[in-house]
Every structure is written in structure tokens, then in C-alpha cells.
């Protein structure tokens, strides 16, 4: 593929701009909150940490982990969404619409309630399993019928699967009321109070999946031209699609395991990324990663300061942003892409 030099230059510019935006969001996430901290103070908490200073403790034990988790999860959800939209050739595909969030939550809650599993690594495994089961069912149901994988079928199947898993989760929580309060906030999705310890077990999965996704851009570009063409060009389409599916499950499953049900990031971000990058997935994926991190961190900062001293659950914030976007996409017509 030959691209004119200026086009590539423009994309590099966008990339740099996004990095800058991400830096700003990251700093905002460390500085803003119930206890406002000045930038100098924040900086000095890294350079010479003072155990006596409340600000330093807040930054190092609460704000920094939050910002890091927000970055990682935002990026993985956005990449998962981009992969799903490419895989299904469907602008409405994303982890939450596919029912992946509720599938993963259901499996995790089963693990906690029935098998008293508490080790994070096992719960993460369960989250992967739930994500995979939900994604497979929705993909299967969505692709039945004469017209193949249509947006409306995917959305409806995803809604039904979500409702199904949600109802079973609710039943279990009603039967075992202990800890409902904790789980409730988690069901609504939140990164408050999450420590880096929770991120560590999933980090290898996320890291590997992201790396692979970054290098798959060219293969995805070829795949989106259509199965026949891709096969003709010597691509092993089944392998590429299968790999993408695995990446989606790893990225989305890990995200749910860490922050709970945070929707719409995977839906919205790839559209913005494509606005900058066109349909070239070598660029769409890195752009999505950065934009996803920015959006999640920004939503988290807003969630913190909107109704101080309380916090809005993160999942609520993203739904309030993403819901209208979904409606906009549905209104514009989903047959495109």
C-alpha cells in the first residue's frame, strides 16, 4: 500500500496530539479530586516522597493507581471494540452490546457465591470464560439467518443475553445478601478503590493481547475487504478471525475482572479513531488505545468531582456519554460500514 507522505505525516501529527491529550488527562486525574493538589506538589510526591504529607499519600496510594488502571482498561476496552467492529463489520459491536460484561460478571459471581473463590487469578479466568461464552452465543445467534450478521440481530441477541445473565446474577445476589453492597458498586462499574494488585494478574494478558493487536493491523485491513479477497491474497481468514476473537475475550474479560461493567467505551472510541484514521487498522488500533484511555480517565475525573463528596459510578458516566452516541448511530443508519 502506498500512501502519500503528507497523509502519513498527518496521522503522526494526530498521534502526537493524542499523546499530549493523554498526558493532560493523566495529570488531571492525579491533580483533581476531593482534595485538590497542586501540580508542583504532585510532582514532588514522585521526586521526594514525604510520608507525613496527606497529599503525597493520596496521590501515591489512590490517584496514581486509579490513573494507571484507567489507562490500561480504557485502552483495552477500546481496542476490543475496534477489533469487534472489524470482525463483525458492524458499527454497533462492542463488549457491552455483545453482553460480554454481564456474561463475565455472572461467571465471577458464580465463582464467588458457590465456590468461594477469592484468588484474583481464578476470578480473572472465570471472567474470560464468561466473556467467551457470551460473545460466542451472541455471535452465533447474530449470524444465523439469510442476511448473516446484521446489526439489529447482534444488538437484540446481546440485549437478551445481557438480561439473561443479569437476572441469574441478581437471583444469586438476592439469595446471598452478604456483600451485595460491594458487588453493587462493582456491577455499576467503578475504578475507585481498585489497587494495582488487582491489575497485576491481568496485566500479562492485556499486554500480550495489545501487542498482538497492534501488529495485526495489516492483516485486519485485508480481512475487512471481504473473505474472498483476503483468501485470494493468501490470508488464512479463519486463523485471523479466531485470533481476533481470542484477543477480544482477553481484553474485554480482563477489563470486567478489574473494573466491573463499564460500557460504551468500546462502542464510541473506534468511531472517533476511524474519523482520524479512516479504515486503516494499523492506525485505528493505536488511536483507539489512546482515545480509550483518555475517555476513561476523563470520565473518571468527572465522576469524582461531579457530586462531591460522593462519586458517580464510572459505568454510569460512560453510559451517559455512550448512550446518546449509540442513539445517534442508530438514527444515522446502521447499514453503513
Amino acid at each position: 500500500m502506498t500512501q502519500s507522505f503528507s497523509k502519513i505525516k498527518r496521522k503522526f501529527m494526530v498521534l502526537i496530539l493524542l499523546f499530549a491529550l493523554f498526558g493532560l488527562a493523566f495529570i488531571a486525574s492525579i491533580v483533581f479530586g476531593q482534595t485538590p493538589v497542586s501540580f508542583q506538589e504532585a510532582l514532588s510526591s514522585f521526586t521526594n516522597y514525604n510520608e507525613e504529607s496527606t497529599e503525597h499519600i493520596i496521590i501515591q496510594t489512590d490517584r496514581l493507581p486509579r490513573a494507571i488502571i484507567g489507562t490500561v482498561i480504557g485502552a483495552s476496552l477500546a481496542i476490543a471494540g475496534a477489533l469487534m467492529q472489524a470482525l463483525t463489520k458492524n458499527p454497533l459491536a462492542s463488549p457491552s452490546i455483545f453482553g460480554i460484561n454481564h456474561g463475565a460478571i455472572f461467571f465471577v459471581v458464580v465463582g464467588v457465591v458457590f465456590f468461594s473463590i477469592s484468588s484474583l487469578i481464578h476470578l480473572t479466568g472465570l471472567a474470560f470464560l464468561g466473556a467467551a461464552v457470551a460473545a460466542f452465543i451472541v455471535y452465533f445467534l447474530g449470524s444465523l439467518g439469510r442476511n448473516g450478521l446484521t446489526p439489529i440481530k447482534i444488538v437484540l441477541a446481546g440485549a437478551a443475553i445481557s438480561a439473561l445473565f443479569q437476572s441469574y446474577t441478581q437471583a444469586m445476589l438476592v439469595l446471598n445478601e452478604t456483600g451485595l453492597q460491594d458487588v453493587l458498586f462493582w456491577l455499576a462499574g467503578s475504578i475507585s478503590g481498585r489497587t494495582l494488585d488487582m491489575l497485576v494478574p491481568v496485566l500479562p494478558f492485556i499486554g500480550i493481547a495489545m501487542m498482538v493487536a497492534m501488529f495485526m493491523g495489516k492483516a485486519i485491513n485485508l480481512m475487512t475487504t471481504g473473505d474472498d479477497i483476503a483468501k485470494g491474497m493468501g490470508q488464512n481468514v479463519v486463523l485471523v478471525k479466531g485470533l481476533m476473537g481470542i484477543l477480544v475475550v482477553l481484553l474485554a474479560g480482563s477489563s470486567v475482572a478489574v473494573v466491573g461493567s463499564v460500557g460504551f467505551i468500546g462502542l464510541v472510541i473506534p468511531h472517533i479513531a476511524r474519523f482520524f484514521a479512516g479504515n486503516d487498522y494499523r492506525w485505528v488500533i493505536p488511536f483507539s488505545a489512546l482515545l480509550g484511555a483518555v475517555l476513561l480517565i476523563a470520565a473518571d475525573v468527572l465522576a469524582r468531582i461531579l457530586i462531591m463528596p460522593q462519586e458517580v459510578p464510572l459505568g454510569v458516566m460512560t453510559a451517559l456519554v455512550g448512550g446518546p452516541f449509540f442513539v445517534y448511530l442508530a438514527r444515522r443508519g446502521v447499514s453503513k460500514l
Binding site: V155, A159, G263, A319, L320, G323, F326, V327, A330, V334
Partner: peptide, 10 residues
């Protein structure tokens, strides 16, 4: 139906 599902989420 699609828009209804979006509004439901909101």
C-alpha cells in the same frame, strides 16, 4: 427498537 435499547441504557 435500536434507539429504544440505547435510551434504555441511558
Amino acid at each position: 427498537v435500536l434507539i429504544g435499547i440505547g435510551i434504555s441504557a441511558i
